[in-house]
Amino acid sequence: MAETEAKKRTGLGALADAGNTDDFSVIDAIGGPRGVIESMLPGVVFVVLFVITSNLQLTIGVSAALAVLQVIVRLCQRQSVMGAVSGLLAVGICLIWAWNSHEARNYYMFGFLTNAFYVVLLTISLLARVPGLGLVIEFIRTLPTEHFRAWLADWRGDKALNRAYTIITALWIGVFALRLIVQVPLYLGNHVGWLGTARLLMGIPFWALAIWVSYLIVATPMHRHKMVQKTSEGDAEVAQNTEMREEH
């Protein structure tokens, strides 16, 4: 059981396994209860502490200490620290930005930039007719070490799968854009408390919803595509064996 749990992937990695399993779990896909807590806690502490004290230096110090503590706890427990370390880096960038600018609202600037970057990147992928979510998921699912064009043509040539990837790419563009539409006005108005609340509500909850809806959209066409692949591979193997027997 433990071994099975260890093999579960999160984020888009979980979607890459969507065609293999019927017991998809949103909680597992977003890192489990512990992953959710570790992701949200620094942000919760930051906004609550700043609203209560209005002391930016104290807020930054406590938030930074908490983020470091999370990594130390995982190290002591000999657990994977990649998620915690990546979270620490993200929080560190946000805290440094707020510290240098002496404005609490700039804690959220890095999030605006990353969301805007994803909107632009995914939009370009749709214009190029290579849906970005499909590119990432298929890359995770079947790492193309060679024959890149054949790998690309394989999943793009499946109309149902490519359409599903196009839909979820547009969905994720909507998620990132909606965050900006709601949060940027709060940033411009310097409403740190409301901005922090919006950031939390539109963070993990939106992430979980996007993954769940994406799973519902891609699971069936991905499963069918994999079945077709297995059938084609089986036919190719039979043909190869037949040819070898004829040669002998």
Rank of each mutant, 00 (worst) to 15 (best):
L133Y: 05
N20H: 14
R245M: 12
R156E: 07
V45E: 08
A84S: 13
H191T: 05
A210G: 08
L49Y: 06
T21N: 15
T231W: 03
D235H: 15
K159D: 11
A160R: 05
A239G: 11
A98L: 07
T231K: 11
G196E: 02
Y118H: 08
A210M: 12
A164G: 10
M109G: 12
M40T: 09
T169H: 01
T10K: 05
G234I: 04
G111E: 04
L56F: 11
I173M: 03
V73S: 06
G92V: 06
W194N: 04
L209T: 07
A219S: 08
V238S: 12
Y215C: 05
I27D: 04
V184R: 08
G189N: 13
L127G: 13
G132E: 01
P144R: 01
S125C: 06
A84N: 06
T21F: 10
L201D: 13
M244A: 15
N55G: 08
L88A: 04
T123A: 10
I211M: 08
L122H: 11
V175H: 05
R129G: 00
D28N: 12
D154L: 11
N162F: 02
T220N: 13
G189T: 13
L89F: 14
T145L: 14
T242R: 14
D28C: 06
T10D: 01
Y215W: 14
R74Q: 12
F46C: 05
E246N: 14
S39E: 09
V36D: 02
S86D: 13
A29T: 05
L49V: 09
F50R: 01
V175Y: 08
P185F: 06
L209E: 03
I173T: 01
R156M: 10
T242L: 15
E233H: 14
D154S: 11
A170C: 03
E138G: 08
Y165T: 00
S86K: 12
R74P: 02
S232H: 13
M244T: 15
Y118Q: 07
R199Y: 13
D154I: 06
I173Q: 00
R78I: 05
V45I: 15
